[in-house]
Design a protein around this nucleic acid. Structure first.
Lengths: 156, 156
DNA sequence: CGAGAACACTACACATGTTAACTATCAGAG
DNA sequence: CTCTGATAGTTAACATGTGTAGTGTTCTCG
């Protein structure tokens, strides 16, 4: 498999969003087939994980913030999940505009089924890259996001 | 603006793909409006940048690798660019299956128009986060992608 | 030459992104 | 208590991207 003599497109790869995307694609490349087996998209999985990680009940707004999805996208995903009986919805009695979302038993089961494989993939990455190093990287990523959001407030 | 007393969805945020996504969204949030002004999507901009960064001519396959797009998506984007006279296509005389893509004068002009604003945003992030730190982060990101790709070869 | 691989495109089904408008509910001023 | 404005969430409509399958053309190599 001669890799040809094409030069890589270098300067471009040094853009920050591209570096973030490439790293993410590398990780998700392992992950997407697993999700596809369970008829889940990347975005749907984000919602499931957010619901699973949520301590109690969650409203739609909290999900939007947690998943970085837009409201209409999330509405569609929740409708899909309702059809598949993965979630239960109730109206917040304290504020009837709010919808309270919970994972159903089936939803929890699905997460429980997928999550171990996810952990395995993560462990593989950890081994290859170094656990401490990965930890440090994640801290930096969070700080970066926070730093960028700070510039938001400076320039409204 | 009372930020409510909702607890953030914490455990979930510590997933690597999510950390990468959140950081990317933070950065792109600044950037997307700029692209929208020029009727460019994020993906289209990736293609433009890749073409601009390419030393010489580029075939479709190289673009696919550089942009992490799928062939059908790229085909459509290139068709769009042709309509807008942003690129020129020629057939590779050495291999007539290959299409050689180049930015047209107009395409270069568009990149030149958008790029400075892009640099400005980048500079803002650099100031806020620290140039050296950002550099180190990008190195780690590249290494991470490389490490993950190495696991690919171990498990085909 | 012929078989099979590689490149690029097309077609199709589906999900998401994006903007705007709309309904229902709530909260606060008067 | 009522009007007004804000908020939660949905719906609509369209553009675009994702993912799979299949097509035609051109290469490569036995």
């Amino acid at each position: 498999m001669t890799d040809h003599d094409r030069a890589p497109i270098r300067a471009f790869e040094s853009s920050l969003p591209m570096a973030l995307l490439t790293a993410r694609e590398a990780a998700m490349g392992h992950f997407r087939p697993l999700l596809a087996e369970h008829d889940l998209t990347e975005q749907q999985w984000r919602v499931l994980r957010a619901l699973d990680a949520a301590p109690n009940a969650v409203d739609v707004k909290a999900l939007i913030e947690a998943t970085t999805l837009l409201a209409p996208s999330l509405t569609r995903i929740l409708a899909n999940f309702e059809e598949r009986d993965l979630i239960d919805r109730t109206v917040d009695p304290a504020d009837q505009r709010r919808s309270i979302i919970r994972l159903s038993k089936l939803g929890h089961a699905l997460v429980a089924k997928v999550a171990p494989n996810s952990e395995a993939i993560y462990a593989m990455i950890e081994t290859q890259f170094g656990a401490a190093r990965l930890d440090a990287l994640m801290t930096e990523l969070r700080d970066l996001a926070a730093a960028i959001h700070q510039t938001d407030e400076a320039t409204p």
